[in-house]
Structures are given as structure tokens and as C-alpha cells.
Design a protein around this nucleic acid. Structure first.
Lengths: 179, 179
DNA sequence: TGACGCATGTAATCCGTTACATGATTAT
DNA sequence: ATAATCATGTAACGGATTACATGCGTCA
């Protein structure tokens, strides 16, 4: 039910349409939780049925703008105050690393170096985001900057780690030569 | 199709039963990719049908031990050499952070501090794992140690970040008092 | 003999992605 | 005109979790 709470949280900040919400999941939020419009629109219908959001405006091209109701806001607060969710990671890149021993050392090193490249690319993206924004505009944007920082720090260490991992592959080969 | 490749990779290292594989997904591998026995057994049947694994032993209690075939090993190598998978994170804990602005500053700080506690717990778990193991036993275990290192480094920065985030919440409140 | 761990499987359900489908508005 | 963007929806499929269901072997 994370999508549900994410939508409510976004609509608690300001009224938005399904289209706007989809944009949010494409840009800032995408890095911790992704969702497509095909999942968002049906969920909005359910949230409205449950009285957690209200249709507050209808615009051009059938645009439907929603806002969180008091019950909706309360639902977010309950979620935030609830039990710590289990931190379940699913990362195919890291998964592949586990099987790097099947490759010749040079190729294994290449695999990890490619990880490093992709982590640095993410990092560059985050740094650009951090630079081109007024993060002091509101409490919501200030906390967004804090969340962005977690990405910046994580990608920094992952890039360093991947370079180190590549080195380890080569070092093992050298050390192992006679074994 | 990640599960498929993960199973093949594990069975390329040594023959195992569905039960053994389930244990692997519970312990070491669980931190980057999780799978339940209900997903594993049907997938093993499909892999056997596709000639990627062989049934090599039948033991007590209906135990069925499989090993990767040459074709299976090749499939893993192709996967490892293939395109970099998109790094899609899904973390409910981080997601909640985005909505911390809805809470009073004290409570927001508590939310992040709870994140710090859970990151430190994971870190402790990883450190224990790192200490109680002979990682030099084989190429496979050596690379496992390298993967574990990524978890150790990530949890270290995430714990630090979460503490910093908690401080930011309190600092903002102080600074904002008059605004 | 009873509890625990080993061992395998299926069914129902949910969540998420991809693809299909349509149409209005705006800018060039 | 026509292309791009805004805008909303549904359908099919696949991947993953939870629950249901069963039974053997070992140890106390």
C-alpha cells in the first residue's frame, strides 16, 4: 500500500491531477519509488471512493485535480507514525556481482567498473538536481533536499565501492596465480 | 528474469536442492534479491524443462538436487555480459522521509532517528557476518565478501545520513521559529 | 510420541509493467 | 495541418507474496 500513501502525501502538499502525480513519480520520487499512470489513475479512483481525497477542480482536456481530505492527511500521519517498514532491496546490478567469480578476472573487473560508471552517472544527476533548485521554498522542499542528500551520499560510496571491487578482482588474480 | 539467473548462478557454483536455494535467498542473497520457496520450486521445474539444469541426486524426504548444465552456465555468462540493468530502487523507508514535513519537527527527527537505528542494526548484522566466515575459501566466497562490503559501506552512510537528517529537522524548526 | 526441521508443491491474490486505446489543447 | 504535449483510462501479463496443503526424518 505504499503507492496509496505516497499519493496521499503528495496530495496533502498541494492539489494535483493524475498527470501531475505521474510527473512527480517520474522525477523526484522516482528514485525511491516508481509508479506509472496506469497504476495511479485506478488508485486515485479508489482513494476518492474511500473518502481520502476530493475532486476539487476540473480543467481542460478532462483534467481532474484532487486534494487530500482530512481523513487522507490523517492516513498519511498514521503511516508515518506506524512501524518501520522492512528494508527490502531489489537490485539486479548488485545481484550480478555475486556471480562475478564465473568470469575471468579482467571481465569481472569490467563488470564492477560499469557499476561504478552508472553510480557516478546517478550521482551527477543528483548533483545537478541539487544545484538547480530553490530548496528553501517550503518545509516540503527542504525535506526533499534532505532526501536527495541520501541519494548523493549513497551513490558516492557505491561508486567508490565498485572501483574498489574492480581492483579486488585484479588483485585476486595476481595473488592467485600459483594456487 | 532475475530469479532465473540467480538460481542458475547458485547452481553453477555447486549442486543444491530447492530447499538449499531457499536458504541462500534467506541469508546472504536476501539483501539484494529475495525469493520464497513458492517461487523457487516452479522456476526449477521450468529451468529443468529448458535444459539449463539437471536433476543430479534424489535424497531422503523427496529431496531433489540440481546442478547447472553447460547451457545453464552459458546463460549466466550471457546475462553477466549483457546490458547494465536499470537501477530501480524501491524503499518504503526512504519514501516516508519525503513526507516528514507533515509531522512536527520533533516527530520528524524521531522518524529519521528510527531509520538510523535500523541502518545500524543492518550494519551490525553485516559486520557479524563478515567476522564469522572464511571468505578466502573460494573465488565464489571471495566475491561474496566483496558484495558484503557494499552493504557495509551503504549502511554506514545511511546511518550517518539519517542522524544528520534528524538534526536538520530540529535545526529547521529553530531557524524557522519566526518565519 | 511429539516437536522441530527438512522438503516440496499449489492456489489465490496483489502489485507493477507493458501495451492498447482514445482524445483535447497548444504551438509551429 | 500537424506534431508535441497534456490528459485519462483499460487490458493482458508477469513477477512476487501469502496462505494453503502435505509428508518424511530425526532427536529428545
Amino acid at each position: 500500500m505504499s503507492l496509496r500513501h505516497a499519493l496521499l502525501g503528495l496530495l496533502a502538499e498541494r492539489p494535483m491531477s493524475g498527470w501531475d502525480l505521474t510527473r512527480m513519480f517520474d522525477v523526484s520520487l522516482a528514485n525511491v519509488w516508481s509508479a506509472r499512470h496506469s497504476q495511479i489513475y485506478p488508485e486515485l479512483a479508489r482513494l476518492q471512493e474511500d473518502g481520502l481525497i476530493d475532486l476539487v477542480e476540473q480543467g481542460a482536456r478532462g483534467r481532474r485535480v484532487y486534494s487530500a481530505t482530512d481523513a487522507g492527511r490523517q492516513a498519511v500521519l498514521d503511516w508515518l507514525r506506524g512501524p518501520q517498514p522492512a528494508h527490502t532491496l531489489r537490485d539486479e546490478g548488485l545481484l550480478r556481482g555475486f556471480f562475478a567469480w564465473m568470469l575471468p578476472a579482467q571481465e569481472a573487473a569490467t563488470l564492477f567498473r560499469r557499476d561504478a560508471v552508472s553510480s557516478r552517472a546517478k550521482l551527477a544527476e543528483y548533483n545537478e538536481l541539487a544545484a538547480g533548485h530553490d530548496w528553501d521554498a517550503s518545509p516540503a522542499t527542504r525535506v526533499q533536499r534532505v532526501m536527495l542528500e541520501s541519494g548523493i551520499r549513497t551513490m558516492t560510496v557505491l561508486a567508490e565501492w565498485a572501483e574498489w571491487a574492480a581492483e579486488q578482482c585484479l588483485a585476486m588474480e595476481d595473488g592467485d596465480d600459483g594456487a
